[in-house]
Structure formats: C-alpha cells, structure tokens
Design a protein around this nucleic acid. Structure first.
Lengths: 193, 193
DNA sequence: GTCTATAGGTAGATAGAC
DNA sequence: GTCTATCTACCTATAGAC
C-alpha cells in the first residue's frame, strides 16, 4: 500500500531535497553549503525546505545515513567476503566522484570534534574495521588464509588505503586506478605471514 | 645579522600569529575558523592581525607552507630513502594530533575545487608520489628491490595508507599504531612479485 | 603596528500569512 | 506545504585615527 494524498507529496519532496543536498554537500562540503542553495535547486525557499528538515544539521545527517543505506541495499550484500565488498565499493566509487567527494570531505570534517558528523564516522569506522577483521578470522579458521595474518592490521590497512586513494584520485583525476591498486594491496597482504 | 628594531617585533608577531593560526585551523578547519578568533589568541584585534597577513587566505596558505618547510628542515633530509622519510614522518605525526588534524582537514578541503588549498595539495601529492616512485626505481637498479615491483603503485599505496591511517587514528585515538602498520605494509609490498 | 568603527555580505532560524 | 519578511548573529575587509 503506497502512501497517498499529502503524504506522497511530502515524501517525494523529501527525497528530492536529499538528492539535491547530497550533490551540493559533495561539491562544497558542509560549511560552504547553504540551505538556501539546496532550496533553490529544489524549487523551494529556504524556509520551505526547513519545513521538511528543521535544521541544516538534521538534513546533513540524513544525507549521510542515506548514502550508507544505499550502499548496503546494492549488490554488496550478496558478497560473503567483506573484503570483496570493499573492493566492489571501491570500483563503484570510481564512477561517482560526487559521492567520493562527499565521503572524503565529511570523514575529514568528522575528525574535528565539533563536527556534527564525528559520532557518525567514529562508529562507522568501528564496525567497518570490525567486520573485515572478523571476515579475515573466518577465512583463517577455514584455512583459506594463513593463520599468521593480523586481522585488525589487515582491515585497518585496506580501509586506510581505500580512503587515501580516494583523495589522490580526487586531486589528480585519472591518475589512479583505485580498484587495481587496492587489489594489488590485498594480494600483497594475504601473502604475508 | 639579525633583523632589529621594528622588524624583529614584526617578525616575532608574525610567527606568533602563524602558531596560533595553525592550532585554530587544525582544530576547526578553514571555514569554521575566523580571523577574529586567531586575533584574540594573539592579543590583537582582527584588523591588527590583517596588518600582517592581508587576507585570511594568505594567512592560511602561509600556515600550510610553513608546516611543510618544518618537516623538511627536520632530520628527514638525512635519510636517503624517501620511503624511510615517509615512515619517520608517520612516527612523528603520532605525537602531533594537531598537525595531523590540520593535514587531514586541509587535504580533504582541497579536494573541493573551490578550495584555496586545491593547487597546493595537488602539487604536493604529485611531487611526493614522484619522489617515492623515483626512490623505488633507484633501489631496483641497485638490486636492493625486486625489479618486478611497480614504483608508482607502491608509492601511491604507501602514501594512501599513511593518509587513511591518520583518519582512523584521529577518530579512534589510541586504537592504531600508525608506524607499525605502515611498516607492515612496506614489508608486504616489497616482497610482492 | 595597532586600534575603533563600519561597510557590505551571507548565514540559519523563526513568525505568520495563505 | 510553502511563501515572504525579518531577526539575530556572524563574517571579511577597509578607512582612517593614533
């Protein structure tokens, strides 16, 4: 049963706002983005937009949450290795400079304590690293990976490299094949003892 | 011959301003930092500060340049391998959260085209990666490293990991030994092929 | 070199009409 | 749901006095 009447309109507009907001935040970062600008792009006044999200912060956090939800809804879930999922995520990112820019800008912002995104990213990294480390452990138990590998170290390095490559890729577009690089790294790491 | 009279005072104040500015920019990022705030910390009015650096942008770029100059002035130059220098830089960073925060925030900012730091960081990465790749090549020629390694790939991954680890370290302080991690990576990479 | 004062902006958020 | 109008709170940069 689809929502109807006033609800449908509200939900659709909300979605439209989130799309526009993601794009503008990605392009300019949090501080340089004004609610007015996002409003303009969705054919609303600033006050009109703030009817749907009562503060700029709320809108911003919603954008971050939706970005994550979408990643998880996509085919990533079908890959049992979270290492595979990471690689596929990197591949997909190579086609979405906007999202990458959003991610880089926001994760760096979150490193500032005052940032609204601090909690979001701190938690995000904790579970991401944990998931990958856990995955490495499972494959060590089944004998697919050498027992000598350090699961936390591997997870940390893979994620770190993925993040750092994004920055290089944004600054010098076309100079880096992120997918190839991260696969090289994985091959090197899994052969370590 | 040292500068004297009014010069000495000017230079000293300039330095004091740069120190304060580095700290505040590191803590809050470029946009969230006001010239007034930096002025307050140095006992000046906003206009008084802008006597030394005529715009906020100029002050900011000066902070970035000085950070780099200091790195290079330190003992890093004495290490012939630029890979070694990278590792030592990572070690030193582990004791300077402020500088790391500045670097992470500013490099991410620079990924936005509109950023004043865009040119600075794009160029910085170009020579940094180039220097390391070149270094790998030299050691391949002398037989110290296997000929099969991809110099650009190695350089890119080392720098990417260093950057990404900084982010993890800032978000979850104490959870990552950056130096140890980057050495693990280097060991893994040099054994590839 | 440093100040006060101010010009000229832009921001987020609110009030109240429709 | 959406608008216009407005408020308050900053901001950078400049002018001109000391």
């Amino acid at each position: 049963m689809a929502a109807r009447g006033p609800y449908a309109k509200g939900v659709a507009k909300r979605d439209e706002i989130l799309d526009a907001a993601m794009e503008v935040f990605a392009q300019n970062g949090y501080d340089r983005t004004s609610v007015r600008e996002i409003a303009r792009q969705t054919g609303l006044s600033q006050a009109g937009l703030l009817h749907h999200f009562s503060t700029k912060e709320e809108l911003f956090l919603e954008v971050l949450r939706r970005r994550d939800d979408r990643s998880l809804d996509s085919d990533e879930r079908s890959h049992k290795h979270s290492v595979d999922r990471l690689m596929r995520a990197v591949d997909r990112n190579s086609e979405e400079p906007g999202l990458v820019r959003l991610f880089v800008a926001m994760s760096a912002e979150s490193a500032q304590d005052a940032s609204v995104a601090h909690g979001f990213f701190a938690e995000r990294y904790r579970w991401l690293l944990d998931e990958i480390a856990q995955d490495v452990r499972v494959h060590q138990a089944s004998g697919e990976l050498p027992a000598g590998l350090d699961p936390e170290g591997i997870a940390s390095l893979l994620v770190a490299a993925a993040d750092g490559l994004q920055l290089q890729w944004l600054l010098n577009p076309g100079s880096v094949d992120m997918g190839a690089r991260i696969r090289t790294l994985w091959e090197a790491l899994r052969k370590t003892t």
